[in-house]
Computed example of a mutant assay.
Amino acid sequence: MTRKVLIMTQNFYPVIGSAGNRMKNIFQLLNDKNIETHVLTTEPAYPNKNLYKDDQFWDDDNIAKDEKKIVRVPIKNNHFSNHILSRLFFYVEIMWRFLLKLWKLRKEKYDYIYVSTPPIFIVFAAFVGAFFMKAKVVLEVRDLWPDSLIGVKTFDYPIIIKCFRVLEKRMYNKSDYIVINSLGFEEHILSKLKNKAKKIIYLPNGPRKQEIVCEKERQSQFRVVYTGNLGLAQDVDHLKKMASLFHIHDIRFDVLGYGMKTKEFKEHVENNDLSNVYMHNPTTRKKSLQLIKQSNLSIAFLNDNQVFETVLPGKVIDYMTCQTPIIAGIKGTAAKIIETNKAGFVFDQDNISEMIKKVLELRENPNQLQHLAENCTRTIRENFLWEENIEKLTEIIDR
């Protein structure tokens, strides 16, 4: 008998970033495995709704064929503010609209609801839907919440945080299965579970086979790249310092960034006349990977907060996919993967001078750089291919 799955997620194709691409891959691969999979999501709006009026973002013909399986609900409050109360109202609106849609779908015979967090409010809408549909809930955790909320230092209301922790614990315990995209989350989640034997599945972000770069293009100029969010979790001040030093050392620095701190970074580039820094507008995944492929090295930063030690940023996987070794100011899970697989070098995030020194050293040592690039490809093939890792999810669904 064919299994039927409903994916509930805030971010889905064509939304840029790791979350949207992740949900797209799960949707496509489950359908390829003859598991009938539908999606309940919002209309694309991140980082802004107008971005998706450009046809270039709707570049996957296979998704277009399956559009009948995708329900997109409109959200009135689609302004991405850094004010925490505005964000909470935004998440509550999504939860409410998802609940209304789930009520209309209540007669559908879904076997599983696959729901992605953050935000956690969507999860509780999924529990309501699962009750009416008599479905099991697979909870995907892409971020430890509310710890990440505390980590970006925008919310400091102990009573509300305590309430959020109660909701977090209930969320883990009420779900039937839990999926994580970073092994760093496992210990924290286990500490909240009453049933320590509950199945936790590690399903990391990764590329499809056709996205893996096997051979780099030779460039006339040495290039370093940063792609992804420039927000509260990323250390934009350190990135600004690196941009200035790259300019001094005549190194081209490509930045494809979006998020709350993008304007601040652009102003730094303009005010200091950093002509070697090239800013790129948000674009499709294909074009983003092409930019990374054209680069010799990549940069990754996260704020120095303990909660971010558990995170495995999607950009780290994208860099390795494109054979582009990483210079990182991060700790914990991501640092361990980079160091263990010899895919780059990890530093204390304040040690900008040593990072620059290593970049200059690698610029003069193409053989070492090539060895690191080969390690990137080996790591991806052995651990991060979607076509192989999806079997961990299909196994529990087919059960």
Rank of each mutant, 00 (worst) to 15 (best):
P119H: 00
I180A: 06
Q28F: 11
E264P: 12
A125T: 03
G20N: 00
I178S: 08
D147R: 05
F131I: 08
E217Q: 13
Y114N: 08
E264K: 12
N62V: 09
V73Y: 00
A334T: 00
K4L: 12
A343Q: 02
N365Y: 10
F57N: 07
F222Q: 04
I248Y: 15
V225H: 08
N82C: 12
I299Y: 04
K107N: 09
S220Y: 10
I84G: 02
S353E: 13
L312M: 10
N11G: 03
V179E: 04
V236E: 12
F127H: 07
P74M: 10
P282N: 07
K134P: 05
K69M: 08
G129V: 06
W58H: 06
E391D: 14
T154W: 09
I251T: 05
T227S: 15
N389W: 04
G184N: 02
Q219Y: 06
L29H: 06
N82I: 14
A130C: 11
L88E: 14
F132N: 09
P158E: 08
F132T: 04
P47W: 05
L297R: 01
S275F: 10
M171Y: 04
L105N: 09
Q234T: 03
A335L: 06
V269T: 05
A45Y: 11
K331G: 09
K287M: 14
A243K: 02
I159T: 11
R106Q: 09
P119I: 06
P74I: 00
N281K: 14
N272C: 06
I326Q: 01
L105T: 03
F185T: 02
F127D: 07
M279R: 02
L30N: 00
I75F: 08
I180E: 02
I299D: 01
K266E: 15
T284P: 08
I26Q: 00
Y202G: 14
T340L: 11
N11E: 05
K357V: 02
K33S: 14
E217G: 12
D60W: 01
T41C: 03
W103G: 06
Y91R: 00
K266L: 15
P207R: 06
T333V: 07
L30G: 00
D235T: 01
N31Y: 05
V179H: 01
D59E: 12
F121H: 11
V73W: 02
K357T: 03
K109D: 12
D143T: 01
H83C: 12
A300M: 09
A130K: 01
I113E: 00
K104P: 03
Q10F: 10
I26R: 04
D156C: 11
T284I: 03
G259H: 01
I26L: 14
E387W: 03
K65C: 13
Y112I: 07
Q56I: 13
E67C: 13
Y13S: 00
D66V: 04
E374P: 06
S175H: 05
E339I: 06
K209R: 14
Q368R: 13
T154S: 15
